[in-house]
């Protein structure tokens, strides 16, 4: 594991502000997962976007994490179940009307544009990060590089693979298409939380 570039970490946090990324810190991935559960608990129930959705009273909150490893998923699933959430690890096509929260782990961070880089080779990874109302991304501080040129070798490896879909994500989904008024939450998440992990 590479060392933490403190300057890059600070730059990332500074650049995240103007693009409305909500930044926090955590000691470990487990604490980041706790935070995702807490965010899910506090937010209002997701507004479903497809017809024939179940009435709000008959719905549980939903928390998706298709990309987590076994151990982390087990931890999250237990914490989420305690809060009465429906926990989703796959089959995201069944949830196109929307989920409450998705938590993912970033593969890289680019400081000067506040960008999280996520490899999403599987459809579930891509959908989960788009159809949630709140996206929580955990990013190890040691994975933050100063600028996009420093992300080049990572990207080269990612795109050399036979099939891959690598996402640069630098904020919540946004538009200024009506009267140039900036509005968050068009087709994707309404909110993006970034948890920087001490690792």
């Amino acid at each position: 594991m590479s060392a933490i570039n403190q300057a890059a970490v600070e730059l990332f946090a500074a650049k995240a502000k103007p693009v409305s990324i909500l930044v926090s810190e955590a000691d470990s991935l487990e604490r980041a997962l706790d935070l995702a559960v807490s965010v899910c608990e506090k937010k209002p129930l997701a507004h479903l976007l497809l017809p024939d959705a179940a009435p709000d009273s008959a719905r549980k909150k939903t928390l998706a994490a298709p990309g987590l490893d076994e151990t982390s998923w087990n931890y999250l699933a237990e914490a989420g179940a305690k809060k009465g959430f429906e926990m989703i690890r796959g089959g995201l096509r069944n949830y196109l009307a929307g989920v409450d929260v998705t938590i993912s782990v970033a593969d890289l961070g680019v400081a000067d544009t506040a960008t999280c880089v996520l490899e999403c080779p599987k459809e579930d990874d891509r959908l989960a990060t788009m159809i949630c109302e709140t996206h929580v991304i955990a990013l190890a501080k040691s994975k933050i590089v100063a600028n996009s040129y420093e992300a080049e070798s990572f990207l080269e490896r990612a795109l050399a693979k036979e099939r891959n879909y690598t996402a640069f994500i630098s904020g919540a989904s946004r538009t200024a298409d009506i009267e140039r008024v900036l509005t968050l939450g068009v087709h994707g998440p309404l909110e993006l939380h970034l948890v920087m992990i001490e690792a």
Binding site: D112, A114, A167, F168, S170, R174
Partner: peptide, 10 residues
């Protein structure tokens, strides 16, 4: 500084 999404598809 960058668009919210840049998608690299291979």
């Amino acid at each position: 500084a960058i668009t919210t999404y840049v998608s690299w598809i291979t």
